[in-house]
Each structure stands twice: as structure tokens, then as C-alpha cells.
Design a binder for these strands. Structure first.
Length: 732
DNA sequence: AATCTTTGTCATCCA
DNA sequence: TTTGGATGACAAAGA
């Protein structure tokens, strides 16, 4: 896998080198300055005016027309942005040497009318010897579908280069390029030649060079560039290699070779490149990749390629034409069918280009989609057939997915920080590709203001609860004046009340008793609401009913109107009344709150009968139990509040996990679709020695350590290994 | 008058 | 065994 990464990472570099070797130099900045300021902004980075609100402005920069931040295109932007930055960084790369390895995967010896796409600039390297024709119908259709934004980023056609003459899409014929080239075109080409070539995001760049124009044969072949080795190649060597790879030798007089460099988008950290080579006798003929019969492009966001239909979601898409994945055997890693159109966000890059012969137009009719499932997840038959001694390979897509989803997940993390409700999770699938985080309802985020409100509310609730206890305690049990009054009435000796306070505080402040019960560990055990008991339990406990709350004013009036003793009696608790009735010589407060030793000393000081002692013990017992009951109730309430909060947290966590699950599922689904499409296309291009296509009912593609294998369904494992195995990618 | 809440109390368990 | 905290259950009082 590491090798694979290396190769693809270096692919960009070598791709650039390849262009340089061939001599094509294109100054994209020129176009960017004059034609594509938004793209320039992407490549060059945001201007200072944008940097502050980079996130939003970058998005606007991408489309240039203010895509809604919630749009699903946003991740396209990020991916494209990242990709472009990396591409641009190639300007600063210094690759001392490289090896260009290319091998022909398929060569159609027949003269066919290709149905390749062309959305990028066409550069005739022979300066008039070839002509790149851009089918305007596609451009028109795409513009119709994608709006002005597409034209913004498309470097294709007359808008950017002015070197392409409009062509009838149905014609798709060969052109005498030089005849069609205007002087302006030629001049422009000359300029381009002298300029550095730069790759725009998702651009296709067609170029070619002419050697001879006598022959009228035309080849459209696809070969892959396993980019990665490190030997030096001169321009001549490169060309020789290309010629050696491509059937130049067989047809030395082939006039023009057209390379269609598919600059792939990024899948995770991988870049994918493809090169389509088309050889014309006279000129490079660029035709539409879209099915001419396809009318969906202008009405729907899809581009029909052959029998495949993929969404065309963004303007970038039209420029991104990766229709085949290379499986360089040189990597020696397990081959992987990957879809370059699947960028890190998992969004499909729509434009699939038919790069093969015309036969491939019926891919669907030849191969059902069922074949692909077997490709991706080999059926039992495959298992039996796949006896390539190699151990079970890890699912390459898992790794790729992991890679590709990193960025998206990071975005999701941002969104997560904003918080999602469970209800919002249902929207996620539709917004996975967007910066949904921006528009997320943050009301459920732990860090969100709303949630803060919730927390505050809970806290307030808790606080209010505490306050209620406290207040009730204060109101119901004592005020300082009341305590003083009570003590004065009962002749109690002061000086020990602070001790009671300490004792009461300390008795409930040890949280260790809740160890092991997380929900309870944070329960507030500061039962300071017991403090009022230290003053005058009896009076206060009784006053709680009549003096607390609304009754305080009434009680004060009653205190004025009634004899004090009557009021005290009426407000006294039963135990206090009993105590008075039994002539207990000290207050119930002392009875209840004195430490045992002092309590016993107090009892010893007074000569009390059994009834008195029994009442005192009952009073003490009930008093303590009363406080205990209050503490118990408070703890119960606190626990309930804690559990309530825990439920909310778990609900949020569940929603987040569900969202992530959906995102993963979507990504996997998209990847499978792309693999299916690529596999179909690959399969459709494979030919036997006689140029016939393989029947899907008889053959199937299978991964192997050396590449993608074409195996016969009827072959035994051993047979398949020995006789019927064909490697799509040959080792170089 | 019925219902709900608050509070006190009892019984019980447990440290 | 005593003391006291914890808690469920019940009842009284009040809203």
C-alpha cells in the first residue's frame, strides 16, 4: 500500500515531467488571470481580502457564485482546493529524475471513431499539424446543466484557448487540423508552447505531436502511467518510450498521437492519472465523450457516458475526466480498482469519458451490474477460482476509504462540534458533502449556547433546588434573631452553635461515600441547609410552616396581635410542645444537635425521669431523622438531575454516532458504485487475441497481487492460474 | 373536595 | 450493643 501511495503521489510529479518532456508548456496562470479569477483564487490561495473568512469565502471562490454554505458542493471545493494546491506546488518541486513507464492496456487496431471526451484545452504540438476539436455540444450541454460556473472553470474550447473550432457532436470525425487552425489558434499554441504548463484541477489536457500525416488510421488506446520509479529520462527517451509502448513502431507514420491526460482527483492521499492515447493520421480528433443521444445533460445533473450515468454535481466535474483507474503492477502491492473520481469527500466526479473504442458503448448491455459486485466482493465462484496463492488481501477500499474519509470526517468533526440533534441526523446524508457544520443547529451541542442554556438551566434548577432547601432551612428553621429569641426563652446557653454548624457541614461533605457511582459522585453533599438547625431547631421547624413564604408577613402581623407565647406554641412542633409539656430544661435544638458526649453530659446535669429521658431520646431521634430525610431527598433530586443530564448526553452521542454511520455507509456505497463503473469500463475494454470482447458470463475480473486478473468462470482454480489468467497490468 | 407537594415521622437497614 | 446515617413508606399540612 505504501508503494501504491508513493506511486500515485509521485504521479503528479511525473505527469508534469511528462508534459515537460514532450514540450508542452501551459501557463495556467495566464488563463487564470484573464479568464478564471475564481480558479486562480483557488490555485493561488485566497486573497488577503478573503483570508479572514476563509471558510466561506473559499467556497464562494470555488464557485464564484456564492454556493450556499450548506451546499453539498462544499467538500468538492475543499477537495479541489487541496488538490489544486498540491498541483500548484508542483511548480516548486524539483524532481531530479523520473522514469516514465507506460504500457498499453488496450489497443484497438481498428479505425474507430472515438467517443472520447474533451473538455480541456487542445494543444497541437506540431503547431498546426493537429487540431483539437472540442465538441461544443458537450460544452453547451454542460453549461446548460451546470450554469455559468462551469464555464468559469472549464479551460476547454474557445473560451479559454480559442484554438478549438466548434464541431458537430454527431460528426465526431477526423479533422485536418491544420486546415482548421486559424492563425490566432496557432499563435496561441505557440504561446502555450513557450509557457509553463500547469495543471488545473480536474483538467484534461490533450496534446499530441505529429510525425506524419499520411496515414489516416486512428487508434484510441488507453494506457496507464505507473509513475514512481526514479531513473532519468530525457525528452527523447521519453518519446521513445512512448513510441515503444504505443504502436508507433508498427505504424511509424502515424501522424499524431494524442495523449489525454486525465488528471485525477484525489482519493484520500492518492492521485490518479490516466493517459489516453489516440493516434490519428492527420490530426488529433477530439470528440465528445458524452453519448450524443444523451439529452440529460442539459436538463439533469448527470452525464451519460455510454450506459453509465453519473451525477454531474459541480462545475469542476466537467473538467475532471477520469474514466479508468490504472493498476500498475510495478507497485507490487495488491491492486486496487479505484475511482479517481472519488475524491476524499466521496463525491462523484461526474464526467466519465469514454476512452475506448466504439465497442465500449454497450458496456451495459454486455455486462450487467451484477458483474461488478463480484468484482468488488468476489462471489464464491471467485473464491474458488482465485487460487492465486496469495493470502487474503485486505480490502483495498477499506484503506482507501479510510484515507478518503479523513478530510470529510474532519469536516464532520467540525460539524460535530457544532452539535447535531438526532433529528438532524436524517439530513446528514444529503449534506455529507457540504460543510453542514456551518448550518448545523447547535442547539444540542454541549458547547453551544443553547446547550449552555440547558446546562445553565440544569445548574439553575439544581441551584434553585439548593436554594430552596437553603431558603426553607433558613426560613423554616431559624433566623439569627429567632434563634436568639428561642435561646433566650429557653434559657439555653450559647457558644456551642458554631460547633454544631461545623459538625453539620462536615458530616455530609465527604464525597467518598459515592465512589463507584459516577452519577452520584458529583452529587452535592454540602448539606449546609442543616445549619439552621444549629440555631433553634424547634422554633424554626415550626416557623417553617407559618412563617415561610407568603405566611411570613401574616405571621409577623400575628406576632404583633397575639401574645408571643401563643404564637410560639402555635408554631411549635409536636416535639417542642411535648418538651414544654414535660418540662424539659433545654431546647430541642440541643437535644438533637449536641454530640453524643455533650448530650450525655447535658442529661447527666439534670435529674430527669424516665418519661423525660424517653421523650428527649425520641426528640433527638426524630430530629436527626428529619435532617436525614431532607438530605436524602436532596440527594435523590440531585441524582435525578444528574441522570437527566446523562440521558441528554447519551442522546447526543447516539445521534452523532448515527450520523457517522450514515456517512460511512454513504461513502462506501459511492465507492462501490465507482468501482462498479470502472470495472465495467475496464472489462469492456479488454479484448482477446482476436480482438473480441470477453463475455461477462464467462469471465470476470478479480483482484490479485499482481493486478487485476481476468478469470474464466468455468475454469478451475488451477486452470485459471495456469492457463486463463491474464494480467491487466504487466510488470515492467 | 380532590389532588399534588412538602414535610415530618417511622421502620428498617447498615456502617 | 449503641449510635446515627440512609431510605422507603406513610401521613399530615398546605397549596
Amino acid at each position: 500500500m505504501l508503494y501504491l501511495k508513493k506511486y500515485f503521489t509521485e504521479g503528479l510529479i511525473q505527469f508534469t515531467i511528462l508534459l515537460s518532456l514532450i514540450g508542452v508548456r501551459l501557463d495556467l496562470d495566464t488563463y487564470l488571470n484573464n479568464q478564471l479569477p475564481p480558479l486562480r483564487e483557488i490555485i493561488l490561495g485566497p486573497s488577503s481580502a478573503y483570508t479572514q473568512t476563509q471558510f466561506h469565502n473559499l467556497r464562494n471562490t470555488l464557485d464564484g457564485y456564492g454556493i450556499h454554505p450548506k451546499s453539498v458542493d462544499l467538500d468538492h471545493f475543499f477537495t479541489t482546493r487541496r488538490l489544486l494546491n498540491q498541483v500548484r506546488s508542483l511548480d516548486h518541486l524539483r524532481v531530479p529524475s523520473t522514469e516514465l513507464s507506460a504500457w498499453l492496456v488496450h489497443r484497438d487496431p481498428e479505425t474507430v471513431v472515438s467517443a472520447t471526451s474533451q473538455s480541456g484545452p487542445s494543444i497541437a504540438l506540431d503547431n498546426g499539424g493537429s487540431l483539437e476539436d472540442v465538441n461544443n455540444s458537450e460544452a453547451s450541454a454542460m453549461r446548460g446543466a451546470g450554469g455559468a460556473s462551469e464555464t468559469t472553470y472549464s479551460l476547454s474550447g474557445e473560451d479559454s484557448l480559442g484554438a478549438v473550432a466548434p464541431e458537430d457532436s454527431q460528426e465526431q470525425g477526423e479533422r485536418e487540423s491544420s486546415d482548421d487552425l486559424s492563425k490566432e489558434d496557432i499563435d496561441l499554441i505557440d504561446i502555450l508552447w513557450r509557457q509553463d504548463i500547469d495543471l488545473g484541477a480536474g483538467r484534461e489536457i490533450w496534446f499530441g505531436y505529429s510525425r506524419s500525416r499520411r496515414k489516416k488510421t486512428k487508434h484510441l488506446s488507453t494506457f496507464f502511467l505507473p509513475l514512481g520509479a526514479q531513473t532519468s529520462l530525457s525528452l527523447q527517451e521519453c518519446l521513445r518510450l512512448l513510441e515503444a509502448t504505443f504502436p508507433f513502431g508498427e505504424e511509424p507514420e502515424v501522424a499524431t498521437v494524442k495523449f489525454m491526460l486525465h488528471y485525477g482527483l484525489k482519493l484520500g492521499r492518492f492521485f490518479f492519472f490516466l493517459i489516453d492515447m489516440e493516434v490519428n493520421n492527420t490530426a488529433v480528433n477530439v470528440t465528445m465523450n458524452n453519448d450524443p443521444n444523451n439529452n440529460n445533460a442539459s436538463t439533469t445533473e448527470s452525464a451519460t457516458i455510454g450506459s453509465f450515468e453519473l451525477p454531474r454535481s459541480t462545475l469542476i466535474n466537467q473538467d475532471v475526466s477520469l474514466h479508468q483507474a490504472s493498476l500498475p503492477s510495478c507497485s507490487q502491492d495488491f491492486p486496487t480498482l479505484f475511482n479517481p473520481e472519488l475524491d476524499s469527500t466521496g463525491v462523484q466526479r461526474p464526467t466519465l469519458v469514454r476512452l475506448s473504442s466504439s465497442n465500449s458503448s454497450n458496456i451495459n448491455s454486455t455486462f450487467g451490474a451484477t458483474n461488478l459486485t463480484g468484482l468488488f466482493l468476489p462471489p464464491p465462484l471467485n473464491n474458488t477460482t482465485n487460487l492465486t496463492t496469495t493470502p487474503v488481501l485486505p480490502d483495498p477500499f477499506s484503506s482507501l476509504l479510510e484515507e478518503s474519509m479523513l478530510d470529510e470526517i474532519s469536516l464532520l468533526d467540525l460539524a460535530m462540534e457544532e452539535g447535531f440533534s438526532q433529528d438532524q441526523a436524517s439530513q446528514l446524508e444529503d449534506e455529507l458533502d457540504s460543510d453542514s457544520g456551518l448550518s448545523l443547529d447547535s442547539s444540542h451541542s454541549p458547547a453551544s449556547p443553547s446547550n449552555s442554556e440547558t446546562s445553565c438551566s440544569s445548574a439553575a434548577s439544581s441551584s434553585s433546588t439548593s436554594a430552596t432547601f437553603s431558603e426553607e432551612g433558613a426560613v423554616g428553621y431559624s433566623t439569627d434573631s429567632e434563634a436568639a429569641t428561642a435561646e433566650a426563652e429557653e434559657g439555653a446557653v450559647g457558644g456551642y452553635q458554631p460547633e454544631y454548624s461545623k459538625l453539620c457541614r462536615m458530616s455530609y461533605q465527604d464525597p467518598s461515600q459515592f465512589h463507584g457511582i459516577p452519577q452520584l459522585e458529583n452529587v452535592n453533599h454540602n448539606h449546609t441547609y442543616n445549619l439552621p438547625l444549629a440555631s433553634s431547631y424547634s422554633e424554626r421547624s415550626q416557623l417553617s410552616a407559618s412563617c415561610s413564604k407568603k405566611g411570613r408577613d401574616k405571621q409577623m402581623q400575628q406576632m404583633k396581635l397575639q401574645p408571643p407565647q401563643d404564637c410560639v406554641d402555635r408554631q411549635s412542633s409536636r416535639d417542642e410542645r411535648r418538651a414544654r409539656a414535660m418540662d424539659i430544661p433545654f431546647s430541642n435544638d440541643k437535644i438533637i444537635n449536641l454530640p453524643v458526649e455533650e448530650f450525655n453530659e447535658l442529661l447527666a446535669k439534670h435529674h430527669l425521669n424516665e418519661d423525660q429521658l424517653s421523650l428527649i431520646r425520641d426528640i433527638r431521634r426524630r430530629g436527626k431523622n428529619k435532617m436525614a430525610a431532607q438530605n436524602c431527598r436532596k440527594r435523590k433530586l440531585d441524582t435525578i438531575l444528574k441522570l437527566e443530564q446523562g440521558v441528554q448526553d447519551l442522546q447526543r452521542e447516539k445521534a452523532q454516532l448515527l450520523k457517522e454511520k450514515m456517512e460511512y455507509c454513504k461513502c462506501i456505497r459511492q465507492t462501490k458504485q465507482k468501482v462498479q463503473s470502472l470495472s465495467q469500463e475496464l472489462f469492456a475494454q479488454l479484448r482477446d487475441e482476436e480482438g473480441r470482447r470477453y463475455s461477462a458470463s464467462e469471465y470476470f475480473l478479480q483482484y490479485g497481487p499482481d493486478g487485476v486478473l481476468l478469470l474464466s468462470r468455468n475454469m478451475t482454480t488451477e486452470q485459471s492460474n495456469k492457463t486463463d489468467k491474464k494480467q491487466k497490468d504487466k510488470k515492467k
